[in-house]
């Protein structure tokens, strides 16, 4: 009895894990489409940062803390700053 309950609980937990992943992936996709469609470059950069951050969550959730850290620092941090600096020099609108 308890065994089957444990199994069921486990199954549910796996499902919950998968669900969390699915939500994150859906968010990722939304961000990607948004980046492709937006015309405001600064907004793009911020959205890109969000994208990286979500990806970072995926890594962390999947048990790869090293990769998550790198993603957070490089993708969400530095890249965004670099983008913003460049945008501040060339103008915000896509031509």
């Amino acid at each position: 009895m308890t065994g089957s309950v444990t199994a069921k609980y486990r199954e549910m937990r796996v499902n919950a894990t998968d669900l969390f992943d699915l939500v994150l992936l859906a968010l990722l996709l939304t961000c990607a489409i948004g980046i492709a469609r937006l015309k405001d470059l600064a907004a793009c950069a911020i959205l890109f940062s969000a994208y990286s951050f979500i990806l970072c969550l995926v890594w962390a959730h999947r048990g790869a803390p090293d990769v998550a850290m790198t993603e957070a620092a490089v993708g969400a941090g530095i890249t965004t700053v670099l983008f913003l600096v460049v945008i501040s020099r060339v103008g915000r609108r896509e031509k």
Binding site: P65, D66, A73, G77, I78, V81, L82
Partner: peptide, 25 residues
């Protein structure tokens, strides 16, 4: 992060990025 890379998650790359981020900020 850099120095503890061999014990905990992290290491040269991650720490380096943090350093870089500091300089940029």
């Amino acid at each position: 992060v850099i120095v503890n890379g061999h014990v905990l998650p992290g290491g040269g790359f991650q720490g380096g990025v943090l350093l870089g981020a500091m300089l940029i900020l």
